[in-house]
């Protein structure tokens, strides 16, 4: 079942740029420039791109904050802006950089207020809150005013707040930004568990690709308002030619004539005692077996391709989107 549908979605902003001392020229900037995307129920989608690529703008059109300039968008079968309040009951939104909690009140009061705002039956509210309390360890700071919470504690509160009305879709805009390592782990662990149920669809933007690797099967990369990749992380590696590497520590350097079928030597360190091969058209098992057969191997490791590198290359390549 399709939960999110965007068809040729566009958002233009007009900006005034200085042209001379007194003149201003109007210029139209396309923040989102024709995005087609569908997301099915229960999917967990990572939505990434460099700063200014249009990630937040897309999210704001999906949640009814911004009116699209062109194209269509449907979320849970609703059109976000005209049906904003109906949609609001079906979705949860977490903004990493803005709070939906009441700054001066104890955390638990924010939850009570949200129960009234969303008109959640008391029993449902209590059950959902109990689940979040145990999974996100909220009990220590439920009575603390939000302004005194650490960022990590606050973010756990924000995620709880977004889930208390039992949304079908959860949008997260930079949910781990600025968090310490422990809090990041807690947030990711919780979201992973949430996604496993298969009922909640999850879409998150992030700069931290570890979030994506931990949580999302599907990765959508946008740049200059266009989708430049949509698929699994593996597909991204395949498309951009990222390979696994075999790194071996040897008792003696390899002879200069040595070759490994289907792999190529990329580095030789420590006077030839440590060598690295990228695996091109061979499996790790075959390569290891071949290497063991012709050299005395003390230790070896297999290095997975680094998504950061791939994405950095993707951002750096000039907008080839045709």
């Amino acid at each position: 079942m399709t939960v999110i549908e965007m068809h040729d979605l566009k958002k233009d902003f007009t900006v005034r740029v200085r042209a001379g001392r007194f003149r201003r020229r109007k210029r139209t900037v396309a923040a989102v420039d024709g995005i087609d995307l569908t997301v099915d129920r229960g999917e967990m989608v990572g939505y990434i791109g460099p700063n200014g690529a249009g990630k937040s703008t897309t999210l704001k059109m999906l949640t009814g904050i911004l009116t699209p300039s062109a194209g269509t968008v449907r979320v849970c079968g609703l059109t976000p802006v005209p049906q904003r309040t109906r949609l609001a009951r079906r979705i949860g939104v977490v903004f990493g950089q803005r709070s939906q909690l009441w700054w001066d009140l104890p955390l638990h009061e924010s939850f009570t207020l949200l129960r009234h705002i969303y008109r959640v039956p008391a029993a449902d509210h209590a059950a959902r809150l109990a689940r979040c309390r145990s999974l996100l360890d909220l009990d220590d700071f439920l009575d603390t005013p939000v302004r005194q919470l650490s960022l990590g504690q606050r973010m756990r509160g924000e995620i709880t707040a977004a889930l208390l009305h039992g949304p079908d879709v959860l949008f997260l805009d930079e949910p781990t930004i600025g968090l310490d390592v422990v809090s990041k782990q807690a947030v990711r662990g919780f979201l992973a568990e949430l996604g496993q149920g298969g009922d909640v669809t999850l879409m998150l933007t992030t700069h931290d690709l570890a979030d994506i690797e931990r949580l999302c099967r599907r990765l959508v990369v946008i740049d200059h308002g266009h989708v430049v990749h949509d698929g699994t992380i593996e597909a991204l590696h395949a498309r951009y030619g990222s390979r696994r590497r075999l790194v071996a520590d040897l008792d003696a350097p390899l002879p200069a004539s040595f070759t490994l079928a289907g792999a190529s030597l990329v580095a030789s360190e420590a006077d030839g005692h440590r060598v690295s091969f990228t695996l091109e058209s061979t499996t790790a098992a075959e390569a290891v077996a071949a290497l063991m057969a012709s050299a005395s191997v003390r230790d070896l490791s297999l290095v997975e391709p680094d998504i950061e590198d791939v994405v950095a290359r993707l951002y750096a390549s000039p907008g080839d989107t045709s």
């Binding site: 309040t85 803005r98 705002i117 969303y118």
Partner: peptide, 14 residues
Amino acid sequence: RSGLMDVILVRPLG
């Protein structure tokens, strides 16, 4: 500027 407007717009009230 503070983002309160965004927060308000994702809630089911006017």
